[in-house]
Design a protein around this nucleic acid. Structure first.
Lengths: 337, 337
DNA sequence: GACACAATTGACAGCGCTGTCAATTTGCAG
DNA sequence: CTGCAAATTGACAGCGCTGTCAATTGTGTC
């Protein structure tokens, strides 16, 4: 039969409640007792039954990671974040569950409610763009479910992890400027995503700082997908005055731009420079290897989860951690002809 | 306060046990009673508390998906499978948890034991190559944890999902042969993975059927990664008698082969045909778009999980479902010069 | 209409743990 | 030593559900 808390208590010569205290790392247990109990637990290979702990203690040891799977069926970005969140949860013996939450339709908040009512997660990790949907955040606060965000738009009242994407985008465009490019196009992401706004803002900031007047034709709306990158590139390359460089708001769209360049017989980077953002594995697999901004997604997932866990474990309020980015100059950018 | 089973019972005018029976879809409840209880549940928006159900009923409603994360940090293939498993679990109100399980070192089985002891999953979904590690399967059977496999090597005593990968590989090579290729190389995967064996066997079968004698120099060992595809291609292209086509055992390796071709100034498909296997999103993003075998990974994850759930819900024994593949002819293959 | 038997329903205990609160021990000032 | 507060420990009930088994109701047969 399985070893129960009661069995450990008997062996350690204490009451079950004391073992419970040690298990939950509570204060007010003498060192001697704590040691004795810990030894008994190890000797008996005691494994607490989480359903019993949940029922009695009214908590679930569950962290839910929410994501929008509208256009992200199996995105590498999310897989990496998930990996990081999982690592953090494991370290503190929390379970992780992943929940797609299609951000479409009226009943979005109701589906969040269902997740909470059905699974009672102790806390939630939000990924973009769910991080910024006000009604949902409101509901989470109402229901008092702690949450941490990955790259939220607002830095106020948020814990989790962020990166200075605007500065990163600006750095990327400055790289293109330093190569001598002046007609630099931007393929943006879904308009209301924070990532799109920051990256566009960084582009504009760099262009303005270089004294260039923005040509509206050079800014094309995309949707973070390969297909939208293809469409945007077709539009840009049909211009009378073509750009000499294209900065896409993520790597998937950049790959679409490169694809169209190839299709038209344009050489990258000789005829056109292309760069992206995120540094997913694809970036190195393309020919030529894609110049991009490295975003440490896995680490970001981990850090966001750790902030949440700090709150869940009553260890502190958690904070919004700023992660560093880096410009990865590879072979898809060069000086214009 | 939350609605409990007892509250539903009172409203429906029956005993709690009867509500429990309806909740668990048990036999021996009269239609009239079942209807009354169901209505009461809905009217009150009753949400059973899974920790209480688990504790009392000694089951967890948990399906664990195990994967080997040695070289698969955030593979698209696994992300798609996970997505399918999740959909199936959701449909039957089971929870899903993902567990990386590094298949290295002695304590591999012990780590499986820990997962079972800590989380008590009702069932497990195995992904390659974990599907074929005998000591692990033995342990699962000893501990009586039902499991279903995705693409297991052995079709005996296994439920889950499979694809005729050997036939698929043969079909791919026949496509190359029909284009006129004779010197066809193969970049294989990790030697003891079923996928590698089947794909290599299909290659050999097709070559033999065409009356060609195998040139050992044309079969290079890879490891399913981009980097290993690059290394293999360098080796192949250094040959005095180069291949005119390369069939890589997966898309990531194929992209490595294409990368090296580009590096050497070889045109795909004019100078060399390249093809892969799996049809991950990358395949369409490469230039030229990669000819490959489409494997419906998401669907396979779903079907494997459904077989497992059939067992868990006592609905039947489950079976090994055969999935169809398809040859996706794109632009990376053509007749040799 | 009486009987045997099957189908349906309910009473009750208890799953393994933790919250509450009371009892006991310890530490320390005087 | 004594007295008192703080620290430590324990007794006990109960979290919300299901397994077991007994009680009740329905069904078919002669």
């Amino acid at each position: 039969m399985r070893v129960r808390l009661e069995d450990v208590a008997r062996r350690a010569g204490v009451s079950p409640k004391t073992v419970s205290r040690v298990l939950n790392d509570e204060a007010n247990v003498s060192d001697a007792t704590r040691k004795r109990v810990t030894e008994a637990m190890e000797a008996m290979d005691y494994r607490p039954l989480s359903s019993a702990r949940s029922l009695a203690g009214n908590r679930s040891f569950l962290v839910a990671m929410l994501y929008d799977n509208n256009d992200n069926p199996a995105s590498t970005y999310l897989a990496e974040i998930q990996d990081g969140v999982l690592e953090a949860c494991d370290a503190h013996r929390y379970n992780m569950m992943v929940r797609p939450l299609r951000m479409r339709g009226e009943d979005f908040v109701r589906r969040l409610d269902a997740v909470i009512s059905d699974h009672h997660p102790d806390g939630i990790v939000l990924t973009p763009p769910i991080t910024d949907y006000a009604p949902l955040l409101k509901r989470l606060r109402e229901r008092q479910v702690p949450f941490a965000s990955v790259s939220p738009v607002s830095r106020e009242n948020n814990i989790g992890v962020a990166m200075d994407e605007q500065l990163a985008a600006r750095t990327m465009v400055e790289h293109l400027l330093s190569l001598g490019h002046r007609r630099i196009a931007h393929v943006s992401g879904i308009a209301d995503h924070g990532a799109s706004r920051w990256r566009l803002a960084g582009y504009r900031e760099a262009m303005a700082a270089a004294g260039l007047v923005e040509d509206p034709a050079l800014v094309v709306q995309g949707a973070f997908t390969f297909a939208s990158g293809v469409a945007a590139a077709r539009q840009l390359f049909a211009l009378k005055k073509r750009p000499t460089a294209v900065f896409a708001a993520n790597d998937d769209m950049a790959s679409g731009v490169m694809w169209v360049a190839n299709e038209r017989g344009m050489k990258v980077p000789q005829d056109i420079s292309v760069c992206g953002f995120d540094d997913i594995p694809l970036a190195r697999q393309l020919w030529p290897a894609l110049t991009t901004i490295r975003q440490p997604s896995r680490e970001m997932g981990k850090v966001a989860a750790l902030q949440l866990l700090e709150v869940l474990r009553g260890r502190g309020p958690g904070r919004l951690v700023e992660m560093p980015f880096s410009l990865e100059v590879r072979d898809s950018t060069a000086s214009p002809a």
